[in-house]
Design a protein around this nucleic acid. Structure first.
Lengths: 134, 134
DNA sequence: TCTATTTTGGTATTTAAGTACCAGAATTAA
DNA sequence: TTAATTCTGGTACTTAAATACCAAAATAGA
């Protein structure tokens, strides 16, 4: 069973975890709590949140009462931001042969994949953390 | 650099290779020729075409003058067919947490990804090998 | 029948992602 | 100052996908 859209479990955990952090704001939320809530291993989740912290999306605090809080307003954090931190920068041309030097004159996929990529990109950009606060 | 749509190099090679086979029809085309044309390793390409053959998309012939030909009209072979043979059956829900038991009540991605998946699915279905014969 | 050619299929290697472990540094509260 | 808690960061393990290798089987033509 293969997914058509590329979303790793790590990126998904990051989004779901940050949604919890946003909802609990301004309280701090620690990795143990998040891992439990998401049925994920604490080690794995901690690693992911380390990257989010290093990239300025969240602030982290050590020691008892430590944990994570957002580092900017929830409206200003999109799933695209999260995705590009956890996976890597997005590329909007989806033919895998293109980079390795395709031998066809014109891309065999035409424009179809490029425009879908762009719509996925926009969708990712429009999913904001603020959506998960009520 | 990460692609938003999931297309392995193998699936892409299969499509590009089959396009060549379709164009050369009714002549047979062998793996060596295809590998050269596509800048791919012959071993890798042969493996991919083995699967296409086993799944009835192409017919294969051994020995000198051997090679591959389509096993059905080019109009009846879509990129979706190829994709599902090379990758695996497509799943149209793209949240990776869904299968592992998401702990959120409603999918955090809403319907957005599902509808994009469907549009990718349709696009894959509409790309027919006959498009590459002129 | 013999040789060269081509697919076949089993296996092995490589690569990347996901996951887990653990000691160290920082912080809080007693 | 001590003990408990929490993030940090380096490393190691596991798993799956991608890719490569090679001997065996089949075939065509001489």
């Amino acid at each position: 069973m293969s997914h058509l859209i590329n979303i790793s479990e790590a990126a998904s955990l990051a989004l779901h975890g940050l949604a919890i952090v946003a909802k609990k704001s301004p309280d701090k939320v620690n990795a143990k709590y998040l891992a439990e809530k998401l049925n994920a291993s604490e080690a794995h989740l901690a690693k992911i949140f380390q990257r989010l912290s290093k990239n300025g999306l969240i602030k982290s605090f050590r020691g008892p009462t430590g944990g994570f809080v957002l580092n900017k307003p929830a409206e200003e954090i999109s799933f695209l931001d999260i995705y590009e931190i956890v996976e890597s920068k997005v590329i909007l041309n989806d033919c895998p042969l293109d980079k390795a030097g395709c031998t066809f004159d014109n891309c065999i996929f035409g424009d179809a994949l490029k425009s879908i990529s762009q719509s996925i990109y926009q969708t990712f950009k429009n999913i904001k953390l603020s959506k998960f606060i009520e």
